[in-house]
């Protein structure tokens, strides 16, 4: 019982981190229908920049994060402007963007490897100490992480609901010709969407880097988890991604407890298959 409760708590924590990982993926897909197969390394880059500023220049955590996010936003915009934008204008863009981002992912992963070396890094925790409630024990750091994730999710949903740019992004996601007819600049919104998604993804990399280890290759593992989550929650649905991330985080924690960590992957795969067969639009997704 004690073990189970502790597993569930840690499942919730990793689930909320996976949610931020999945958000960037689902935002890009929802608006532009590009499936970013270079997603993982984007998160890794965000984390590495923060790590570098923290440990080499001694910049405090908050400005280091902000600087890194500013870099991610401009990087996202550049990637859209100079690679995705021309590819989207060609036939067969759906798969050529997939292959391109895969190639770019490998390229960037190895650039990170060349620049920072293969050694494992980690971003220091935000707060020390642990919270004890009965037999449940949670690190304050993890409490802080969950708090941050909640703030990020709330901020994003407010952004999509109430700002002009956020509404335009939702409009483009639902109908591109409709958006053109009301005078939305599609190129600009796509560019901003990539900037936003890269920022969120970079931020999720930073959060994951404080909880888990960091090396140039770990992004692939994060990304594939993100893939399963967004499919589970329905491609392009942000609320679906959050729910799916929590569910899968819990499943992962329970499976690790009872069967061992080695079975986590096959279980994710089987769950993924079941969802695809029964409800390809995802658990919360409205359309396929």
């Amino acid at each position: 019982m004690e073990n189970l409760v502790n597993a569930l708590v840690s499942g919730l924590i990793s689930g909320s981190l996976y949610a931020t990982m999945a958000l960037g993926l689902t935002i890009i897909y929802g608006v532009s229908r590009v499936f970013n197969f270079g997603h993982g390394v984007i998160a890794v880059i965000g984390a590495y920049i923060t790590w570098y500023l923290l440990s080499v220049f001694g910049v405090p955590f908050l400005p280091a994060t902000l600087l890194s996010l500013a870099f991610m936003a401009s990087f996202g915009w550049l990637v859209y402007r100079f690679t995705m934008s021309p590819l989207l204008k060609k036939p067969n863009w759906e798969f050529s963007t997939v292959l391109f981002m895969l190639g770019a992912g490998i390229l960037l992963e190895n650039v990170v490897l060349q620049v920072f070396g293969p050694r494992v890094k980690s971003i220091p925790v935000l707060v020390d100490g642990a919270l004890k409630v009965g037999f449940i024990q949670i690190n304050w750091h993890e409490v802080a992480l969950m708090g941050i994730v909640l703030v990020v999710i709330a901020a994003l949903s407010l952004f999509f609901k109430y700002t002009r740019t956020g509404q335009a992004m939702r409009a483009v996601a639902q109908s591109i010709p409709g958006a053109q007819v009301v005078g939305i600049n599609i190129e600009q919104i796509f560019g901003l969407t990539f900037a936003l998604a890269f920022t969120v993804t970079g931020f999720s990399g930073i959060l994951l880097g404080t909880k888990y280890y960091l090396n140039p290759h770990v992004g692939w593992e994060w990304m594939v988890k993100g893939f399963v989550i967004v499919t589970f929650g329905g491609l392009g649905s942000t609320s679906g991604a959050v729910v799916a991330a929590l569910v899968l985080g819990l499943v992962e924690a329970v499976a690790t407890l009872y069967f061992g960590a080695i079975w986590v992957w096959p279980i994710w795969f089987v769950l993924f298959l079941i969802v695809l067969l029964l409800r390809p639009q995802g658990i919360l997704g409205g359309r396929t």
Partner: peptide, 20 residues
Amino acid sequence: GTLRLTLLGALICTIILFYP
């Protein structure tokens, strides 16, 4: 050497973008 994968990634990106 270690740059091999970097070059390979760059090769794939270049072909798709400029010479599909």
